[in-house]
Write a protein that binds this DNA or RNA. Structure first.
Lengths: 296, 296
DNA sequence: AGACCTTACGGTAGCCGTAAGGATC
DNA sequence: GATCCTTACGGCTACCGTAAGGTCT
């Protein structure tokens, strides 16, 4: 039993004629006869009564017709569903992202993506960059967004890394701070400031320590928090300053509740937004679309 | 997309290996590769990620797997259902029968048939013999049971007739009747009796008139009824005698409420129980089984 | 080196179209 | 005689198995 045979059978049954079915199927009439004969032989039943002038479904034929139409509908749906997937109009993307990126970078991207591809399911898992990397490697997520120092070009095994651009870190101070009138600040000038920092293990904390150590500046970490949002509130309240991603303070800066100072001073390492994916895993239609959006 | 390809795909997906799927399918491994490749090419999607050591379903693969397993289940069910039909263990028989046969002959037959083939649906339509004949010709019923005078051997067009045996007609009289002590009676002796008869148009009425006319006997039809059951009650009540099928009075004779006299006298035409069917229509498994039962 | 999937190549089985045959109306 | 389905025959497509080639562990 093959789908071609079932298709021929359904057509013959609907048209009640081998000849007209052959026309519809773009086959010759003997070819249709053989398709039906093969089915009848395999199933051990007669599917049509040949009444000379006309033909008529037998009971077995009616039974098979029910199944055959059901099967045809399913194959049509399968074709449809897969062509939707291939065209990127349907499917599912699992994204892993470092927490700050998930909070401050992804929302506008996902909003635009959702508008362009409303049929695609999105799932998001957040965590530390190292954890996101594991999720990508294990295939739990299709794509990972993390931060990293320097331009990542190494392809660690099956893992591909691409930079989406620089992820600028700024000094956030409250409006009344002595540095608040400035637009730039060197790392040296941070000496003596009380710094609010993320907990250890986060890329943001590691980066801050790296920058300060390179400059030989000793800064007291007066408070350690596990939330960028909490740090911003503390800075607003005048409890200190902090090194934060520029995108994370954009709203507060626009509203005048915080001032963002560009860090200068040599040598200042750059952080990048990095997208991670497995090179040996198939890139589905939706994922390709998402990639295109990321690179804009 | 063909069922063979879907079968290969499902096997590969379940075993998570082309090699092991090939073993299960009794194919070589390259053959399996080509089946999957053909599917991927036709559908325009990758179904498996080839990760060197192992393979993994893609999103498109998982989507197709759902459809493919559904389709496989349906084809299995279709096979099953049709083999049930072929074996005579399932199906449906539509029977047409003359009213007296339906009442007095069919019940024990159908009881035995139901015991032997409990899976087969039975439908019964009753009517005059001429009407049953039409039902068989038009294909509304698969088989017809009627009465006819003489052995029917003619094949009227597509209609096949076979006799199942003689359908004896007897004279039914009440126990107190003057003939009640006899076991046989000639047609001549009916002269002067008051006869209860079926309405005109029934085979029973036609037969009775035929027999009486042949013998040159004039009998007054004192009452005309359209029910054999009603006639029997009238005869029991002493309102007359009647020519009835022996099987129709068997119960009353056994109970002593009626006496059945065998008709003799030359020439006495015989009635037969006749089974009608279309020769050009397929005889399904269940129908064959029913035929076998009828001929026992 | 071993395991696994893919590609290449030659042979065969199955399907198709043309042509002839048989049955029915 | 016309119509419709079936059977026969030659040709071609497509699938299979064997063998060689890649790639990753």
């Amino acid at each position: 039993m093959e789908l071609r045979q079932l298709g021929a059978f359904v057509t013959v049954a609907r048209r009640a004629s081998f000849t007209r079915a052959a026309e519809e199927l773009h086959l010759t009439q003997p070819a249709v006869t053989r398709q039906i004969a093969a089915l009848e032989s395999e199933l051990g039943v007669l599917l049509f009564d040949r009444l000379g002038k006309s033909i008529q479904l037998t009971g077995a034929g009616e039974t098979l017709l029910g199944y055959a139409e059901h099967i045809q509908r399913l194959t049509d749906e399968a074709h449809e569903a897969l062509s939707e997937l291939a065209a990127g109009r349907a499917g599912r993307i699992a994204i892993g992202a470092a927490s700050t990126l998930a909070t401050y970078v992804l929302p506008p991207l996902l909003t635009r993506f959702r508008q362009a591809y409303p049929g695609i399911e999105l799932s998001l898992r957040t965590g530390l960059s190292a954890r996101v990397r594991e999720l990508v490697l294990s295939g739990v997520v299709d794509i990972g967004l993390v931060t990293s120092e320097g331009e990542p070009t190494r392809t660690d095994g099956a893992l591909l890394s691409e930079s989406l651009g620089v992820y600028e870190t700024v000094l956030a101070v409250p409006p009344g701070h002595t540095l608040a009138g400035r637009t730039r600040v060197t790392v040296d000038e941070l000496a003596g400031e009380s710094l609010l920092a993320m907990t250890e293990g986060t890329n943001l904390r590691t980066y801050a320590e790296h920058v300060l150590a390179d400059a030989g500046v000793v800064v007291s970490v007066t408070m350690e928090l596990d939330s960028v949002e909490a740090i911003k509130r503390m800075v607003e309240a005048g409890l200190g300053v902090s090194l934060l991603p520029r995108v994370a303070v954009a709203t507060e800066v626009d509203a005048g509740r915080l001032v963002a100072l560009t860090l200068t001073g040599v040598p200042l390492p750059e952080r990048h937004i990095v997208v991670l994916r497995r090179g040996d895993k198939h890139q589905s239609g939706p994922l390709t679309a998402f990639f295109t959006l990321l690179h804009q």
